[in-house]
Design a protein around this nucleic acid. Structure first.
Lengths: 356, 356
DNA sequence: ATGAAAGCGCTAACAA
DNA sequence: TTGTTAGCGCTTTCAT
């Protein structure tokens, strides 16, 4: 076939120049029509309509990289989370995305697997893609990330784990843990004068991480205010992995000869590990024990023994984070969102009701 | 301050031109150094080193939009899923991301909320951002998406729910449901001659969706092969919402006067809804009933009554999908990945063991 | 071993 | 009401 009638390469996508040529107009007119600014450019309705039809017919899609390059804003917004495969972070991600779409932004969610090196690499990548702002959830090294963002002039807010150099939205860990500890230690008071041991334990997490530290503070405060003596061995920070938790609970049970009267599990993964030990215990073992978990899984509220859970309000956290961004807040203030206590719904205990 | 010494606007980011000026070299040299192609361009090691230092000092980050525009490939890869907040899809997302990072690609995961219109909008957006390929999980309208991708010359593979115009990786729904149905209907045979009702029910999902259809086919096949008569009322497709499931199970229990002897729940959300009814039932109600669920939650395996679960192998599904992309497969072949049967680990029934 | 210059597709002055 | 044109920051021949 002669060069003059050669078809455009099957692989090259239609551009505004093609559309301009085909519709007998100019690239800038097409541009205005395609990006919706044609009314204020006073382009005739008929022209716009025609161009739109041509565009549809040729399956035109705008090149957002080119647009982003030119406008120096990409239309993308970023969020980093430790993992997708976790109820809490998945909810945060879902909320982030819903809010982004309401604003016609393209959400990009990346997971860091809690690796500080990867975390930095990912933030650099997002900066390179010119995301317009960044939410940072569960950062391992908030300050380093703030520095990166600062250099790139990138507005950012911390979620869940706070940072010192940008605004943060966190759960009110202290209050949540306080309420939870009351639930699991309250029954102890009742049998204060009985022969039953009344010691309550906190299991899981790293005492050095901010959220855990706050929860431990609340835990010890509640224990102490009962007049009970608080001992250091009541805190067992064995990390978050199910395996570590399984080992830790086994050792504890062996040592004290029974389940503790109260047990606060610091995450679902910890709970999962603990369950793999519980499976070996007889039903009676749970009679004088109350379990609480800081985090929520619907099925965990339906176990044989009552479990008090805390559900974080991920949607409100994200809503607040957007507010901070939109108000252009950059001071390192911390907004605390309240978590919700979910009562046990243990089956075979009569009607569905709050046991706590 | 005189214009000549004016500092660059705090807001403008450093470019290769700045770096070239500062290091006394040229943009193309800087470009080669920054994108790693400097060895084959035979740039002196010392030059490269110097440029790298200058870049680091000025906090340079490449503009990936510009690079993408120029190279006509963005370095991003896309995946759409119905929701983030779901164990299975979250796992798929996590695997997708891990594999992408291994290949130095930037993963973009977007959720459609099972809305066909949103689904199309999102794919168009990803096309506009020039993602290099697309994984489509749980599509509501696979064919429309294939058409879009085809027009944009975008390689894509379907995951979970297959498409007709591109390769797919699905779970072997038939086999999974077959195994599961055997588990929950096997006990019935044992009491074949007793007075206990032996009817087994399938609850949840939409009979029209591909995965559910396959599972129902397996379910009916297993039921029938026992010589039991199969009746249409044994399939209750009430959708996926917990509320609908709660209502459906209540109606069923009221109608037959007890729990069915076997019950296959088609998703975790369905199971969740069913639980909110179970909570009203006495312990004895479960004695002659076996429950199975197509999907997995660790805590659901620890309930008072035994629950057989199916866990889909999300990581292998994603690995296969990458293989298809990398082999440039475009034929609509379907690869089936096998799901795993997870036995109950009900507590208070003796040692941790497989009950099934 | 390095530099100059064209151009990726788009937007936004500025012209007309 | 519409067209012309100069870049956005980068890669990539082609020179040197």
């Amino acid at each position: 076939m002669p060069a003059s009638t050669q078809l455009r390469s099957k692989n090259r996508k239609t551009t505004i120049y093609d559309l301009a040529r085909i519709s007998g107009t100019s690239p800038s007119t097409v541009s205005a029509v395609m990006n919706g600014s044609w009314r204020e450019r006073r382009i005739r309705e008929s022209t716009a309509l025609n161009i739109k039809q041509v565009a549809a017919k040729h399956g035109y899609t705008p090149n957002l990289q080119a647009r982003g390059l030119r406008k120096a804003r990409s239309g993308m917004v970023g969020m980093i989370i430790p993992v997708h495969d976790n109820r809490f972070f998945a909810s945060l991600g879902q909320s982030f995305e819903n809010h982004a779409r309401e604003r016609d932004l393209c959400p990009v969610i990346a997971s860091t697997l809690r690796d500080p090196v990867e975390e930095i690499r990912i933030v650099k990548t997002l900066i390179s893609y010119a995301v317009e702002f960044l939410f940072i959830a569960g950062a391992t090294n908030p300050d380093a990330l703030s520095e990166l963002c600062g250099a790139a002039n990138l507005p950012h807010v911390f979620v869940d784990l706070p940072g010192k150099h940008a605004p943060s939205v966190t759960t009110n860990n202290y209050l949540g843990a306080e309420l939870l500890t009351r639930k699991i230690s309250a029954p102890n008071k009742a049998r204060k004068n009985s022969s039953i041991k009344t010691k309550t334990y906190f299991l899981g997490g790293n005492a050095s991480d901010h959220a855990t530290a706050q929860r431990i503070a609340a835990f010890t405060a509640v224990i102490s205010e009962n007049g009970d003596k608080f001992e250091a061995d009541q805190i067992i920070s064995c990390g978050y992995s199910p395996d570590k938790a399984a080992t830790a609970i086994k050792i504890l049970c062996d040592r004290i000869g029974s389940l503790p009267s109260g047990l606060l599990l610091n995450s679902l993964t910890v709970f999962e590990g603990v369950m793999s030990h519980f499976v070996h215990l007889p039903a009676e073992a749970f009679e004088h024990s109350t379990i609480g978990c800081y985090d929520y899984d619907p099925f965990a509220t339906f176990l044989k023994f009552p479990v008090h859970m805390v559900r974080q309000n991920s949607d409100e956290m994200i809503a607040r984070a957007y507010e901070l961004i939109e108000r252009k807040v950059t001071d390192p203030l911390v907004i605390e969102v309240q978590a919700e206590l979910i009562p046990p719904r243990t089956i075979h205990k009569g009607r569905y009701r709050e046991l706590g």
